[in-house]
Amino acid sequence: MKKYVILDLDDTLLDFTRGEIEGVTTLLTEHGVTDTVHGLQVYQTINTAVWQQIEQGAPREPLLNTRFTKAFGALGISVDGVTLERRYHAMLDHNFYVLPGAQDFLDTLQKGQLTLIVGTNGTKTIQLNRLEGSGIAGYFDRLFISQDLGVDKPDPAFFNAIFAAYPDMTTANTIMVGDHLASDIQGALNSHLDSIWYNPHHDTNSEDIQPTYEVDSYAAAEHLLLND
Rank of each mutant, 00 (worst) to 15 (best):
N199D: 08
N190V: 05
V33K: 01
L9C: 10
I126S: 00
F68G: 01
H223E: 13
P62N: 03
A221I: 09
E30R: 14
A188R: 13
A49I: 09
T120S: 10
L224R: 07
L14E: 00
R86C: 08
D93R: 14
D141P: 06
Q103Y: 04
L224P: 09
Q127H: 11
V82C: 07
N205C: 09
R18A: 00
H180G: 05
A74W: 04
N205T: 11
G73N: 10
Q52V: 05
T204S: 06
V177G: 01
M169G: 02
Q52H: 12
N227R: 11
F72L: 06
G81W: 07
A182R: 15
P59E: 05
L106T: 09
P156Y: 11
P59D: 04
E22C: 04
G23Q: 04
L106R: 12
D141N: 15
E214G: 04
A164I: 06
D11R: 00
S183L: 07
S146C: 10
L27F: 08
Q52L: 13
T115S: 03
L128D: 09
N199Q: 09
R130L: 00
Q53K: 15
D80F: 10
A220F: 03
T125Q: 11
L189K: 14
T26D: 02
V24F: 12
K3H: 12
T123C: 02
P156H: 12
Q53L: 14
D104M: 07
D152R: 05
A182V: 12
E132M: 07
S78E: 12
K124S: 14
T125C: 04
G138K: 11
N227W: 05
N227Y: 07
L13S: 01
L27E: 12
Y166G: 00
E61G: 03
I77N: 00
N190P: 07
D168K: 07
Q53F: 05
V98M: 01
R60D: 04
I209Q: 02
W51V: 09
Y4G: 01
T123M: 13
R86Y: 07
T83Q: 15
K3D: 13
G76S: 03
I77R: 02
H223G: 02
H89N: 13
A164M: 11
I46C: 03
N47C: 06
I117Q: 02
D208F: 06
D228K: 05
T69S: 12
Q186R: 14
L193Q: 04
I162L: 03
S217Y: 10
D194M: 06
R130S: 00
N65I: 03
E132P: 02
L114K: 15
L27V: 10
S146D: 07
K124R: 14
T83L: 12
D80S: 09
I196L: 03
A157H: 09
G112Q: 10
D148S: 15
L13V: 12
E207C: 13
G122P: 11
